[in-house]
């Protein structure tokens, strides 16, 4: 028995389906496996050494790495033009969070950032960000403005 196929009925409906405004649905819209995990914004930053960088301004941490990241959750620095700074860190211990505050002196040298006259630590720069690297962790700070 010979079957005659005609381009009509439901086949036609399926064929013209995209023409009725559903064209955007066609094609796979599946999130790739490697894109499921939220990527931190700082991962895309390209840091370069920033000797003697004029740091004056307000900075907020966006990433803390290393063992210190277990307890230190957030850091703010205000580097002032007169060579002083004030800072606050949110530190967690035994399930309780509390701010520590500091004030002291700073200098941006060729060797990096000197805080309170101690050994300078490497200082790097990316657009809108700086990275300070200490022996037990690093701190990525984003430049902020006081509003």
């Amino acid at each position: 028995m010979k079957r005659e196929h005609t381009f009509g009925g439901w086949r036609l409906l399926v064929a013209i389906w995209p023409l009725f405004g559903f064209g955007g649905c066609i094609g796979s819209n599946v999130l790739a496996h490697e894109q499921r995990l939220v990527a931190p914004v700082v991962a895309e930053l390209q840091f370069a050494p920033a000797p003697a960088l004029p740091l004056v301004g307000l900075y907020e941490s966006v990433l803390i790495t290393g063992e210190v990241a277990l307890a230190q959750r957030k850091v703010y620095y205000v580097f002032q033009g007169d060579g002083t700074y004030t800072a606050a860190a949110l530190v967690e211990s035994d399930g309780q969070s509390a701010f520590q505050t500091l004030s002291g002196t700073w200098r941006s040298l060729a060797a990096g950032l000197e805080l309170d006259g101690k050994e300078p630590v490497p200082l790097e720069q990316a657009p809108g960000h700086v990275r300070i690297t200490a022996p037990n962790g690093s701190l990525v700070l984003r430049a902020e403005t006081l509003r």
């Binding site: 210190v68 307890a71 850091v75 800072a87 530190v91 211990s93 630590v121 037990n136």
Partner: peptide
């Protein structure tokens, strides 16, 4: 305890 950029950091281990 340790310190990190002049802050005091409690001893914590992962």
């Amino acid at each position: 305890a340790g310190s990190f950029l002049s802050f005091s950091v409690p001893a914590a281990k992962f």
